[in-house]
């Protein structure tokens, strides 16, 4: 296998992260995330598909197993680098992301293991995200969208509409705020809305609304 360029790794890492929210990932979303133009992204997506790292359908792209394992390796190196920067070099945790973006592509497998060992095999990055182990096994981050819950599931809200302050306030006035317990009462089929119970009130939430509420 030819060595992966930083650009390839960057793509796979982004797709992997975006897959957590949206599956498959649309190319426009990917372009937005990478801050690149749509045509250059679709060209690259074709190349990656030819190499068997992802599959490309009308709706968007999904990583293949091989693509996923590379992505997880990059994420492991990124998060280990962040640990190294904060724990050993004394960086603040809000400064490390960009440095780690450069480091993640330069670290060899050998070096990766040594960093991990010398840091005592940390399980999370300084931001609290889990670090995949060397076989790519990711301790599942237990946060998911409210929309993934099934009828009669319960969860505790972690975050609500992070990027839309108006909606966040509206939800707050209804009592949908972090640390509050929700119970799903009914889920309409085919991606329809769901009914949730929050402190004695019942609300119907559209699926896209529910997908932006994170619970654990």
């Amino acid at each position: 296998m030819e060595a992966d360029t930083p650009r390839v790794e960057e793509y796979l890492e982004s797709i992997y992260k975006l897959q957590q929210d949206q599956y498959p990932v649309s190319t426009s979303r990917l372009a937005e995330h990478l801050k690149l133009s749509a045509p250059s992204v679709s060209e690259m997506v074709k190349k990656l598909a030819n190499r068997g790292l992802l599959s490309h359908t009308e709706k968007g792209v999904c990583l293949t197993e091989e693509g996923k394992s590379i992505a997880k390796k990059v994420i492991r190196r990124h998060r280990l680098s962040e640990r190294l920067l904060t724990d050993v070099l004394g960086y603040r945790w809000d400064e490390v992301h960009d440095e780690a973006c450069r480091l993640e592509h330069a670290i060899s497998s050998e070096m990766e293991e040594r960093i991990s060992e010398s840091l005592g095999n940390p399980r999370t990055c300084p931001h609290g995200h889990p670090i995949p182990d060397k076989d790519g096994v990711l301790v599942k981050e237990n946060v998911k969208s409210l929309s993934e819950l099934k009828a009669s599931d319960r969860g505790i809200i972690v975050s609500v509409f992070e990027e839309d302050p108006r909606m966040l306030k509206y939800m707050a006035s209804l009592g949908l705020i972090p640390d509050v317990c929700v119970r799903v009462e009914e889920v309409a089929p085919f991606g329809g809305p769901m009914i949730v119970c929050v402190s004695g009130s019942r609300y119907a939430l559209g699926r896209e609304v529910a997908s932006r509420i994170k619970v654990k």
Binding site: L174, S201, R202, G206
Partner: peptide, 8 residues
Amino acid sequence: TGLVMEMF
């Protein structure tokens, strides 16, 4: 806007 509605 998406549906947010109280169920009575």
